[in-house]
Design a protein around this nucleic acid. Structure first.
Length: 901
DNA sequence: GACCTGGAATAATGT
DNA sequence: GAACATTATTCCAGG
C-alpha cells in the first residue's frame, strides 16, 4: 500500500481509502441508492471545522464497537470524522411518492443542537477541486466559498509510485487502444490531459492488490477489511495503471489481436476459480463485483457484491483525476472534440479530483479559467463554448457552493423524488451492435419504434435548463454500475439533433445532454452510440476481475441533477431496458422484451404473449423453477401457438405449475429457446396460489401488492421459496412499487440471497441494488433480501430470528411488511421499528440498533408455503432486550465474518 | 469522404 | 490434445 502524507488540516478531498484505518472504513456506511442531495454550505462548514471529510455513520452492519473505534479516527486522522447519526423519522427508503423529503439528507439535530444529517458521506473539500462536473457551479459561489478553504494546502504525496504499480499489470497484451488512453492523442481527443502516472493517486484499489504485499496470507487477513470495502476494481477510478507505450511496444506488435489476458475457469456460477499469474493478488475474487454473466449466472448473484455500495461511495469520494481516462481507449473519446484546442499534457497530480475534469467541461471557459486561477492545479484546459450554454445554477445562497460530491456513477439513485421523476419515455431497442475502436461508429442507439430513446424529467417547473448525464451501465440485475467493457460514444453529424457533450467520470465516459424547459425537459437521445472495448484491454486493468466474454448487455443510464432551493442538488437516475450489444446475439439469440402476464394461478392455461426478437416458429418456451444452486427443480415446455407465431412475438399457454397447492406465490422463470445454446435470458413469472391470499396478517393488501407490484410480488415469491431456512418477509416500499411503470418481468433476474453460496450471515451490500431498483428503476425492479448499509434496512438472517438493520434509525420506518400502518392488534415490524425508532431517538443513540422481527417459521415440508406471519406484540420494554440480544448476535457474526471472509 | 450498416472472415476461447 | 462450437475482433463493401 502506498504511503501517503497528507497535510493534517488540508481541506482537500483526499481519498481516504488507504489513509483510513480498515476498521474505520469498514464502519463507514453509505447510502448510495437514494436521491443524492448535496449539502448546504452551512452544513459543510459545520463539518469543515472539525474535519475534512466526515462520514456520518450508522452501523447497520457493523457492531457498535466499530462505531466507537471509528471515532478515534477523527482524532488520529483529520481527514475522516465519523459523526453519529441522529434519528430521523424520514429515511430514504420511504415512498418516493409521498416522502420526497425522505430523500433529502435533511438536517436533524447535532449534539450541540445544530442540524445533524442522517447517515451519509460528507466530503469537505477544496472547492475548486471538487466542483465536480456540476454545471451549476457558479462563479459567485466560487468566490464566496473558496476563501474559506485553503485550496493550496491540499497535498498528497505518494512516494514509491513505481512500487505501487502492480507489475503484473504490465501487460504484454495491452493493445493500442489501451495505449491510447494515455497518449497525447487521447488527450487531444478528449479535451483533457491524462497524466500518466496514475497509480499513486489511486489508493482505492491498493489494499487488495498492492504488489508490495509479499505475504499473501498475511496481507490477506490484514487487508480483508479493506478489501471488503474496496474490492470492486470498478470503483477504483484508477484501477488501471496503464502500460506505457514503451512497455507495450516492446512486447506486442501493434494491431495484433490481443489474447485475453486471463484464461479463466468458472464454476457453475460463473465465478472465477483459477487465476492467471498475471492477475492482481486480490485475495478474494469472490468479493469481486465483476463476474462474468452467463446464462447460469444471470439470475441473482448479488451476494457477490458484498459492500459494493460502500465501495461505490468510496468511489464517489475518490478524487483521482489521473487515470480517469484509463480504460477508455482512444477512439472512445474521439468524438469529444474535433474542434477543441490542443492541450498540453501535464502529469502533476496536484489537483486530485476527477471531478475537476468534469468541471472543466461543464463550465464555460470564463468561469473555468477563473476557477483555475483559484485552484492550485492548472493542468486542465478549457473547453470551448458549446452552442448550448451548459446550465448554471440559480443564484443560491452567497455562502453556499455546490457540493463536490455528486453521487458516483455506481450509486443507486431513484428515478423519482417528490415532484420530480426522471423517466424513459421511449426505450432503446433491445439490440444495438456496439462498435469497436477499430471500426467506425455504428450509429446511435435507436428506439424499437424506429426513432431514438427519449428521456423526460417530469415535475420540474423551473426555467433553468438542466443536464442529463448518460453513461453505459451494466445490465445484469446486480448493482447497476458503469459497464467496464462498454462506453457511451458521442454521435455527431447532421442526423443528430441533440446537442451533447462528453465528459469522463471515474473511467466512465459520460454524455451530457441539455434538458431544456422549452422542450418540456425532454431529451431525444439520438447522439449516443456504444463503444465496445476489447476485453483484453479491460481485463488487464489492475484489479479488474470481471470478464468481458459474454458480458454483452448494457443499459443506458440517465441522471439528472436538480438544484434545490436550499442549495442542495437532487439527483435522479433511471436506467433503460437492457441492450444486447453483440453482433451474433443480435442475429441469433432470441430476446424477450415483454410478456403480457407476469403472474397467474398455478392452474395455468392462460395465453401469454411474449414479445421480443428472433423468435422462430419452432421456438420453444420453457418454464423452469430453479433451486438456489441453479438446478432446475421443475421444467416444463409451454405450448406455443404456431399459427400466431411472429418473429417478434409468441403466444404461449402458461403451463400448470407442478404444485397446485402452493399457498404463496412462487417465482419461476421461462426462456425462449431456438435450439441448442440459443436461449433467451430468463424471464420471471410468478405462479399464484389457486385461491387464497397468502399473508394472512394482511391478506388483502399484501396479496394485492403481490399481484400488482412487481417487486413486492417478487419479494413475496421469494418468501415462498423452499430453500430458506427462515422465511423472510421482504421489506418493500409500496410507494416504489407504485412508481413502477414497466413490467417487472422485463428483467429476468431474481435477487436471491438464498443461494447456498451466499452466507446468510453476510451483509450483502450490493443487494441494495435490488431494493433500490424497486425504487429507482421500475423497469428493472427487483427486491433483495438484504439491504445495504446505506439508506435502507438490511435484513439479516440469524438463528431463529430475523434482524433488520436499519442503517440508521430514521430508516426503520421504511421497513414495511404491508403498506398500511400497523394496527395495535398486531404490532407489525413497522410498528416495532417505530417503537425502536422512538426509543432510539429518545436515547439519542447514534448508532444503528438492529431490530427484531417476529420470528418466522420454516416451512416444515419445504413446500413453498411459509407459515402465515404471526406478529406478536411485545412489551415495549423488551425492545432493548431485543436490541441487546441482536446486537450480540451481530457482533458475533461480524467478528466471525471478518475472520473467515 | 466520412459515416453508417450488414455481413463475414478469422482468431481466440470454451466444450 | 484434437475436434468442434461459440464468441470476440477485425475487415470489407455497399448505401
Amino acid at each position: 500500500m502506498p504511503r501517503t502524507s497528507v497535510a493534517a488540516a488540508a481541506p482537500c478531498s483526499l481519498p481516504f481509502g488507504p489513509l483510513l484505518p480498515a476498521r474505520a472504513r469498514d464502519a463507514v456506511e453509505f447510502q448510495p441508492f437514494f436521491p443524492f442531495i448535496m449539502k448546504s454550505a452551512e452544513e459543510e462548514n459545520y463539518n469543515y471545522a472539525s474535519s475534512n471529510l466526515s462520514a456520518s455513520l450508522s452501523l447497520g452492519v457493523m457492531n457498535s464497537s466499530l462505531s466507537t473505534s471509528c471515532h478515534g479516527v477523527q482524532s488520529s486522522n483529520p481527514i475522516i470524522s465519523i459523526i453519529p447519526s441522529a434519528s430521523n423519522s424520514s429515511g430514504y427508503g420511504g415512498n418516493p411518492e409521498n416522502e420526497a423529503s425522505g430523500y433529502y439528507l435533511s438536517p436533524n439535530v447535532r449534539p450541540n443542537g445544530a442540524p445533524l444529517e442522517s447517515p451519509r458521506i460528507e466530503i469537505t473539500s477544496c472547492l475548486g477541486i471538487h466542483s465536480g462536473n456540476n454545471q451549476f457551479f457558479h462563479e459567485g459561489d466560487v468566490e464566496e466559498s473558496i476563501p474559506k478553504r485553503t485550496l493550496s494546502t491540499a497535498t498528497l504525496n505518494l512516494p514509491n509510485v513505481d512500487t505501487y504499480r502492480d507489475p503484473s499489470c504490465l501487460s504484454p497484451a495491452s493493445s493500442l487502444s489501451s495505449r491510447s488512453c494515455n497518449s497525447e492523442a487521447s488527450s487531444f481527443e478528449s479535451n483533457y490531459s491524462y497524466p500518466y502516472t496514475s497509480p499513486q493517486t489511486s489508493p482505492w484499489q491498493s489494499p487488495c492488490v498492492s504488489p508490495k504485499t509479499t505475504e499473501p496470507d498475511e496481507s490477506y487477513h490484514r487487508n480483508m477489511v479493506a478489501c471488503n470495502l474496496v474490492n470492486s476494481p470498478r470503483h477504483s477510478p484508477s484501477t488501471s495503471p496503464r502500460t506505457s507505450i514503451s512497455e507495450e511496444n516492446w512486447l506486442t506488435a501493434p494491431n495484433s489481436r490481443p489474447t485475453s489476458p486471463f484464461k479463466r475457469k468458472y464454476n457453475i456460477n460463473g465465478r472465477q476459480t483459477s487465476y492467471s499469474p498475471h492477475h492482481s493478488p486480490t485475495p478474494s475474487p469472490h468479493n469481486s463485483p465483476r463476474v462474468s454473466i452467463t446464462e447460469e449466472t444471470w439470475l441473482g448473484n448479488t451476494h457477490q457484491y458484498t459492500n459494493s455500495a460502500i465501495v461505490a461511495a468510496i468511489n464517489a469520494l475518490t478524487t483521482d483525476p489521473i487515470d480517469m481516462n484509463d480504460g477508455i481507449p482512444i477512439k472512445s473519446r474521439k468524438t469529444a472534440l474535433d474542434h477543441t484546442p490542443t492541450m498540453a499534457l501535464k502529469t502533476e497530480p496536484i489537483c486530485d479530483d476527477h471531478d475537476t475534469l468534469s468541471l472543466a467541461t461543464d463550465l464555460q471557459s470564463e468561469d473555468f479559467y477563473h476557477i483555475r486561477k483559484t485552484m492550485s492545479c492548472d493542468q486542465y484546459l478549457s473547453v470551448p463554448q458549446h452552442p448550448y450554454h451548459w446550465a448554471k445554477p440559480k443564484n443560491i445562497s452567497p455562502t453556499s457552493y455546490m457540493s463536490p460530491s455528486l453521487p458516483a456513477l455506481d450509486w443507486h439513485l431513484p428515478s423519482q423524488s417528490g415532484p420530480y421523476e426522471l423517466r424513459i419515455e421511449v426505450q432503446p431497442k433491445s439490440h444495438h451492435r456496439a462498435h469497436y475502436e477499430t471500426e467506425g461508429s455504428r450509429g446511435a442507439v435507436k428506439a424499437s419504434t424506429g426513432g431514438h430513446p427519449i428521456v423526460q424529467l417530469h415535475g420540474y417547473l423551473e426555467s433553468e435548463p438542466l443536464t442529463i448525464q448518460l453513461f453505459i451501465g451494466t445490465a445484469d440485475d446486480r448493482l447497476l454500475r458503469p459497464h467496464a467493457f462498454y462506453q457511451v460514444h458521442r454521435i455527431t453529424g447532421k442526423t443528430v439533433s441533440t446537442t451533447s457533450h462528453e465528459t469522463i467520470i471515474s473511467n466512465t465516459k459520460v454524455l451530457e445532454i441539455p434538458l431544456l424547459p422549452e422542450n418540456s425537459m425532454k431529451a431525444i437521445i439520438d447522439c449516443a452510440g456504444i463503444l465496445k472495448l476489447r476485453n483484453s484491454d479491460i481485463e488487464l486493468r489492475k484489479g479488474e476481475t470481471d470478464i468481458g466474454r459474454k458480458n454483452t448487455r448494457v443499459r443506458l443510464v440517465f441522471r439528472v441533477h436538480i438544484p434545490q432551493a436550499n442549495g442542495r442538488t437532487l439527483t435522479l437516475q433511471v436506467a433503460s431496458n437492457p441492450i444486447e450489444c453483440s453482433q451474433r446475439s443480435a442475429q441469433e439469440l432470441p430476446l424477450v422484451e415483454k410478456q403480457s402476464i407476469d403472474s397467474f394461478p398455478v392452474s395455468g392455461g392462460k395465453k401469454m404473449i411474449v414479445t421480443g426478437h428472433n423468435f422462430h416458429q419452432d421456438s420453444k418456451v420453457i418454464f423452469v423453477e430453479k433451486a438456489p444452486d441453479g438446478h432446475h427443480v421443475w421444467e416444463m415446455e409451454a405450448k406455443t401457438d404456431k399459427e400466431m407465431f411472429k418473429s417478434n412475438s409468441l403466444v404461449v399457454e402458461i403451463p400448470p405449475f407442478r404444485n397446485q397447492r402452493i399457498s404463496s406465490p412462487v417465482q419461476v422463470n421461462f426462456y425462449v429457446c431456438n435450439g441448442k445454446r440459443k436461449r433467451s435470458q430468463y424471464q420471471q413469472f410468478t405462479y399464484l396460489p389457486a385461491n387464497v391470499p397468502i399473508i394472512k396478517t394482511e391478506p388483502t393488501d399484501d396479496y394485492e401488492s403481490a399481484q400488482t407490484c412487481g417487486p413486492m410480488n417478487q419479494g413475496l415469491t421469494q418468501l415462498s421459496k423452499p430453500y430458506y431456512s427462515q422465511q423472510i418477509l421482504m421489506p418493500s416500499d409500496p410507494g416504489s412499487c407504485l412508481v413502477s411503470g414497466f413490467t417487472s418481468c422485463q428483467q429476468r433476474n431474481t435477487v436471491m440471497s438464498s443461494s447456498p453460496n451466499s452466507s446468510p450471515k453476510l451483509h450483502d451490500l450490493s443487494s441494495s441494488s435490488s431494493y433500490n431498483k424497486c425504487i429507482s428503476n421500475p423497469g428493472h425492479s427487483q427486491l433483495g433480501l438484504q439491504q445495504p448499509t446505506g439508506g435502507v434496512p438490511i435484513i439479516q438472517e440469524v438463528p431463529r430470528s430475523i434482524v433488520v438493520h436499519p442503517s440508521s434509525p430514521e430508516q426503520s420506518s421504511h421497513i414495511m411488511l404491508q403498506p398500511q400502518p400497523c394496527s395495535p392488534t398486531h404490532s407489525s415490524v413497522m410498528g416495532q421499528q417505530q417503537h425502536q425508532q422512538q426509543k432510539v431517538q429518545r436515547n439519542e443513540s447514534p448508532t444503528t440498533q438492529p431490530l427484531s422481527l417476529p420470528e418466522l417459521h420454516e416451512d416444515s415440508n419445504h413446500n413453498l408455503a411459509p407459515i402465515p406471519v404471526t406478529i406478536k406484540c411485545e412489551p415495549e420494554e423488551l425492545d432493548q432486550m431485543y436490541l441487546d440480544d441482536v446486537n450480540e448476535i451481530i457482533r458475533n457474526d461480524l467478528s466471525s465474518n471478518n475472520v473467515h471472509t
